[in-house]
Design a protein around this nucleic acid. Structure first.
Length: 809
RNA sequence: GCGCGAGUGGUGGAAUUGGUAGACACGCUAGUCUUAGGAACUAGUGCCGUAAGGCGUGAAGGUUCAAGUCCUUUCUCGCGCACCA
């Protein structure tokens, strides 16, 4: 008997798939399409880790499952190649990012091949390939044309030692991540995408997405829609007013002071007399710190009085104007009316600085706590006393508008998407700055704006990308007037590059346009998107761009991803994250090399638990799966080697087990319960194992074993191909139909019924499948052990068809 | 703090619709055989108890003939957001 040897059969089938181009697909309107994709990887120098192996094993299982069902399956792969690691590596070693990236991609592709994933490599893309980023740039110009890409002065982190701009996540506790210097804020002109124009559309789209609730909630919160009012407060003894945003205009009679953010434009003018100096100092200090920092610090409120007053438009009361950093400059109007009786933050502030608190909403259950957000009956509110606060919310805005300025207003937490990066290794922003015409888009026929090759990748310390020093490249002519002009030297955020790659897979080599709409509309939207990261950013940006593309008539759908599979992490054996420093990293390629093979690795990853949960790697666990595949192998070999195939002893039982398993595995994969699909295959194998000692019949065993090859193929494709071939199957198992189950064969003649007495299990009876209720009840009561517990006439006997009898005494 | 999940044997987990809790796998125990093979096979394995039986799904209540599943309260852990007015 041949032994199961994955290191022999796996490379063999990988070669066959490659030679036959088994996974390449084209648009075919006569077939139902199925488009699945994992989130494309950043090809790091470290190669593939278990997270990748897990993610792509899920994707591949689905691709193979649907391919076997006869769908036209697109399972592509690409590489998210722009980004900081390659650039930092270049700064350190001088190896150009393009060269290092190409090597890493080669390595990743080898590793993908060894995993046995069924990818259509003819569609490979890489975001740093000029043939790709030409179209990323083209999208930028289209957004620019539509007013969705614009420039704005904005504050950026600046490290005075490294003399470079830092991203928010590169600032740790107010210090530069590299040198530890206290960072500063610097105002710079930056490019933004106007995602806020799509806030409502993106919010409305969330409801119908077949995505995990937590991702949908995360996106909803991120967009952060608030409906309220903007109300104007006149500044006392000044010809000025301060506009505030509130979601609770009904509490305006309780507004006892105003608070402005330190960034508020009026702050500079409001300081009066003795208060002026302390105000200036406070503002200077607050602006130095980021919003992020302010939030990380203790919630102890700080603030200063301006010495100035405003008039509450509801009751004409003079209310003091304060400045405090708990009010954010970037949200609403950067100013609030503080209602300490009904907002815990205002309450904390009022307590600390002894400001008046007026309770304007009465609720019965209210205790002494400041009643944050509660609805109730209005009081201390003039003519509105006794009314319901919820009912008056809109009325009071109308009333305020009659003798002042007040309008209904909706605000969002989401800000526009800042895409400028002062970095080399990214897609150049396709803009030319002309002294005459300003920022002009590079015309389509001059795209791509190719990233120039340079020698020195280290930032020069001027807050610009090193591209600014590639003088020949920077100096150009204005597309509008032909006069001398300069190129934009910032590159785009990598998220821009990954916001449309799922569309490019449909038509990856098109040199005329970003994609052909027929191809894109055939394959998209994506049926399954598999990943475990980017809950908000990437998954929101992809939606944003697709919404825009639909508005531009480039695609005929709004939402790019139908079903999102957001899987967990694979942790180390002790449940903590794998990390190089802890030395607990499991390298999936090592696992394959150890002799377990890719099939065991993949099947184990699917068997570990529900895909959406985190799981801890258990070296014993993969041994168990290897044992299972060995049993599959052994039982198949014993059939193949058998000289006598005339023993029909267990044929009926084998047939029942086979059809039950087909049904179960099919259902389980459909509902993405991959761990139970694998356990179903294990049970089936164990059962066949039991019967093999009695000997083999020909057709029944052959069919039973071919079925296992088919059902196992999504998880362990190599052994499945091998067994399929040994059993005389036609062609590749992955191109053969998924087995069907025959419902009639699964039905058993006698069924087992549990018997409970007062809710406790007391016995089990066997009855005919179609026995009527009275017969079953009688049989239940006749059961010896049941009778022991039923000493009086039962009060009630309930028969649940096909399941149990419940006797109540 | 707010939001979203999840708590089941020694371990990972199963139970699709309120209907036999613990499938499958790991580990462990005992045994068989040792063509020393990452062995294989057989039997057992929730807890207490010799048994009959009792107890048992984070905790406490409740609804029901019947609750891991539904309701109320509460605790713990994970993830996301985090002074957004």
């Amino acid at each position: 008997m041949k032994r199961y040897n994955p290191s022999e059969i796996e490379p063999k089938w990988q070669q066959v798939w490659e030679d036959q181009k088994a996974n390449e697909v084209t648009v075919d309107a006569s077939k139902t399409k199925m488009y699945v994709s994992g989130m494309f990887p950043y090809p790091s120098g470290a190669g593939m880790h278990t997270g990748h192996a897990f993610s792509y094993s899920i994707t591949d299982a689905l691709a193979r499952f649907y391919r076997q069902h006869g769908y036209n399956v697109l399972n592509p792969m690409g590489f998210d190649t722009f980004g900081l690691p390659a650039e930092n590596y270049a700064i350190k070693t001088g190896v150009s990012p393009a060269v290092a990236t190409a090597q890493n991609i080669e390595n990743f592709k080898k590793q993908f091949s060894r995993m046995g994933v069924s990818i259509d490599w003819s569609r490979e893309i890489s975001t740093s390939d000029p043939d790709y980023y030409k179209w990323t740039q083209w999208v930028f110009t289209k957004l620019h044309e539509r007013g969705l890409a614009y420039q704005k002065e904005s504050l950026q982190w600046w490290c005075p030692v490294d003399k470079t701009v830092l991203a928010n996540e590169q600032v740790e506790a107010g210090a530069c991540w590299r040198c530890g210097t206290q960072v500063e804020k610097k105002s710079m002109k930056q490019w933004f995408f106007k995602i806020t124009d799509y806030a409502d559309a993106l919010l409305d789209g969330i409801e119908d997405l077949d995505w995990p609730q937590k991702i949908k909630t995360a996106q909803t919160n991120w967009i952060g829609k608030s409906v309220g009012a903007e109300i104007s407060f006149a500044v006392s003894e000044r010809d000025d007013s301060i506009s505030v945003f509130t979601t609770r205009p009904d509490t305006i009679f309780g507004a006892t002071f105003l608070v402005l953010a330190p960034e508020h434009p009026l702050v500079a003018e409001l300081g009066v007399g003795d208060y002026k100096e302390s105000l200036e100092e406070y503002v200077k200090d607050a602006i130095k710190r980021s919003e992020v920092d302010r939030m990380n610090e203790s919630r102890e409120k700080t603030g200063v009085f301006t010495g100035n007053y405003a008039i509450n438009p509801a009751n004409g009361e003079k209310v003091p104007i304060w400045v405090a950093d708990y009010v954010l400059g970037g949200y609403g109007t950067g100013a609030i009316m503080a209602v300490p009786a009904h907002d815990e933050r205002d309450y904390a502030f009022a307590e600390k600085f002894n400001l008046p608190i007026i309770d304007v909403i009465y609720t019965e259950e209210r205790d002494d706590d400041p009643s944050y957000g509660a609805e109730g009956v209005m009081q201390n509110s003039g003519e509105f006393d006794g009314m319901s606060s919820a009912d008056m919310r809109e009325k009071i805005v109308e009333w305020l508008a009659e003798h002042g300025e007040a309008t209904e207003k909706t605000t969002y937490k989401m800000r526009d998407w800042l895409i400028s990066r002062q970095r080399y290794w990214g897609a150049p922003i396709p803009i030319i700055h002309c002294p005459e015409h300003g920022a002009v888009s590079v015309p389509e026929d001059q795209l791509p704006v190719v990233l120039p090759e340079i020698e020195d990748f280290a930032p020069k310390g001027d807050g610009k990308s090193v591209l600014a020093h590639a003088e020949d490249w920077v100096k150009t002519t204005c597309p509008t007037c032909g006069g001398p002009a300069l190129r934009e030297t910032d590159t785009m955020d990598g998220y821009a590059c990954s916001s449309w790659y799922l569309l490019r897979y449909s038509d990856p080599h098109n040199t005329e346009k970003a994609w052909d709409s027929e191809a894109v509309n055939y394959w998209n939207p994506l049926d399954y998107y598999v990943g475990g990261d980017h809950a908000v950013a990437h998954l929101l940006y992809v939606r944003f761009w697709t919404h825009v593309f639909q508005d531009m008539g480039l695609v005929n759908f709004k939402e790019p991803i139908k079903k999102l599979i957001y899987h967990g992490y694979i942790n180390a054996e002790d449940g903590t994250k794998m990390s190089k420093s802890k030395g607990n990293v499991i390298d999936p390629l090592d696992v394959i090399d150890q002799g377990y093979g890719a099939d065991s690795l993949r099947t184990y990853l699917m068997f570990m638990g529900p895909i959406e949960l985190n799981a801890a790697w258990n070296p014993k666990g993969i041994a168990g799966v290897y044992r299972f595949l060995n049993r599959v192998w052994t039982v198949a070999q014993q059939y193949v080697d058998a000289t006598d195939r005339s023993v029909t002893k267990n044929d009926d039982a084998i047939r029942v087990a086979q059809h039950k398993t087909v049904r179960r595995v099919t259902d389980d994969i459909r509902r993405l319960s991959l761990n139970t699909a694998v356990s179903g295959l294990m049970e089936y194998t164990n059962e066949l194992y039991k019967y093999k000692v009695d000997g083999f019949s020909d057709e029944v065993w052959r069919e039973a074993l071919m079925t296992i090859a088919q059902l196992l193929a999504p998880f362990a494709p190599h052994i499945s191909e091998e067994l399929w071939q040994q059993l005389g199957g036609e062609g590749l198992v992955q191109h053969n139909a998924w087995p069907q189950w025959d419902a009639a064969l699964i039905v058993e003649e006698t069924i087992s019924i549990a018997v409970q007495v007062n809710g406790k299990l007391r016995g089990e009876i066997s009855v005919a499948r179609d026995a009527d209720a009275e017969t079953v009840k009688a049989a239940a009561l006749a059961h010896e052990n049941v009778a022991r517990f039923v000493t009086t006439e039962p009060k009630k006997v309930i028969y649940v068809q096909g399941r149990l009898v419940s006797v109540v005494v």
